[in-house]
Design a binder for these strands. Sequence first.
DNA 1: TTGTAAGCGTTATCAA
DNA 2: TTGATAACGCTTACAA
Lengths: 334, 334
Amino acid sequence: MAATMQDVAQLAGVSVKTVSNVVNDYPYVRTETRERVMSAIADLGYQINASARNLRRGRTGMIGLALPMLSLPYFAELAESVITAAEERGLVVIIEQTGSDRRRELDALHGARRAMTDGLIYSPLALGAEDEELLPTSSPLVLLGERIFSDRVDHVTMRNVEAAKAATEYLLGIGRRRIAVVGVHPGEVVGSAGLRLQGYEEALAEAGIERDPALYGAVGPWGRANGAQAIGTMLDAGTVPDAVFGLNDTLALGAMHEMQVRGLRVPEDVAVIGFDDIEEAQYSTPTLSSAHFDRDEVARTALQLLEARFAARVPPEPRRVATEFRIVERGSTG
Amino acid sequence: MAATMQDVAQLAGVSVKTVSNVVNDYPYVRTETRERVMSAIADLGYQINASARNLRRGRTGMIGLALPMLSLPYFAELAESVITAAEERGLVVIIEQTGSDRRRELDALHGARRAMTDGLIYSPLALGAEDEELLPTSSPLVLLGERIFSDRVDHVTMRNVEAAKAATEYLLGIGRRRIAVVGVHPGEVVGSAGLRLQGYEEALAEAGIERDPALYGAVGPWGRANGAQAIGTMLDAGTVPDAVFGLNDTLALGAMHEMQVRGLRVPEDVAVIGFDDIEEAQYSTPTLSSAHFDRDEVARTALQLLEARFAARVPPEPRRVATEFRIVERGSTG
DNA sequence: TTGTAAGCGTTATCAA
DNA sequence: TTGATAACGCTTACAA
């Protein structure tokens, strides 16, 4: 059996309270006492029982991270950042994969898993603005992205519109005029797809270029296969763009792949830019230009927002923090 | 405050024990009683307190997954499978990123995090055979891969030698003779690098082809950048292979990229095969041939081994389970 | 600076 | 089939 505080206390000849004081770095412990306790801890290989501590404290030391799936590189990289940032704060992360399924996204919000964590970092894909009222407001929650907005919840946003606009402007700046956009979710306004498309359209409008529906590649999930398929359909229909804006990097990479297979040269015939700047963007052929966000910063900010709620007696005002971005120029845009 | 079993019991007019019986699907509860309890649970929005349950049960319902980092696609996909398989069994996964750092790998084995999980699935990269004795033998542990072998611990292995041999034989089968190998860790015998290299060498030996050190690309971590660098160095030295075996897919993809940049055609000039069959292999240009393993099967097997230990009164004999593989032929080998 | 004792919300034992 | 009650191992008033 594992040693308990009782065992340590007995061996050190002190009370459990004193052991607890030592374990929790309570300052008013005599050095000599502390040392006796420490050595007893070492002797017994004592490790604190997290369940007991959590039960007593009313906290679990764990936070949830709900995301579509880890095999999407963007989310794997986000998870990496969140886990690292959480570890710095002594928190443990439980990842819940929602598969961008509406029911499972709701479950992450309210289900049993939610009860075993102190807070939730939430990156929804299926829920939308109409679900705002379903967001729990009593328990700490940070929303990532701009899919849902609520005045009652903390947000870390991505400046989707501005970054997409900047990406499109970059393509315009290198002389491209027939810019396809891949990954469109028709009718969507508030999600990443809707917002990034809005940025694209604003850039074109300001450049005085007319909107051409033939250049819109609509797809479902944002994977490479759909990026390839969207541009394939477009090319089959006889529409040949001189640039492609992928609403995320995997779409852009898929589209780039499909065009190369069909003999188009990137960037000579078609320039390509993505969004998110996943690691893979640095290693594709050619390397992929992209709108870059600092995921570590997103993770740290989200954790700060959560912890502000853990600590507070009165819940703080919900905050909305926007993450900075920059356009990274690589081979796919020449 | 969240409702407790007491509250539910009071509302339903029964004892806490009865609520507990309902919650735990104890069969001997009258249907009518069960229904009253259920409706009280629903009314109060009661959710069980995991800390209290775990304290009482002496289990946490959580398992650890120690891996180098999630931004490596192979590990992200492995984590996805493990989380999914764990969820099916009502277990929660805590991911610990070791950064393939020796100290952090040891910490995953013995540290505080370890104490809050019931078992650990462990994919070491820095520890080696000499660390066998450091493996805890009292707590449930499953080792992934063939980096460490111990008779005292469960293993899920990958048939590294056989699969690498098959991959090399496949290249030989399509007529390649100067087969470079990328990702070599000189001097390593037991890790993935050592074993896969062994498979490569066995295949060449059986084909009667002499070992050529110029075709060995040694690198550190197995990322795309190092794959590119290894083949770059080789080409700079005037060695031009007619095929490349990447000891994993990201190495192969990096190497493929570098060769394409230098004007070599894949697969015409150089065929490329990887190892692991990550999702990206299906979307690169050209698509990447690879040695495929079923990660879901690995995950399920690992969990079965852990659970066998949770359940057992007497610890079961350590088992070693080998995962099947197959060579997937794609564009990079013509 | 340290000790005593009461709980945190469950589950397990035993009795009814 | 259900209920009383004692743990599980820790933290925290409160006392000393």
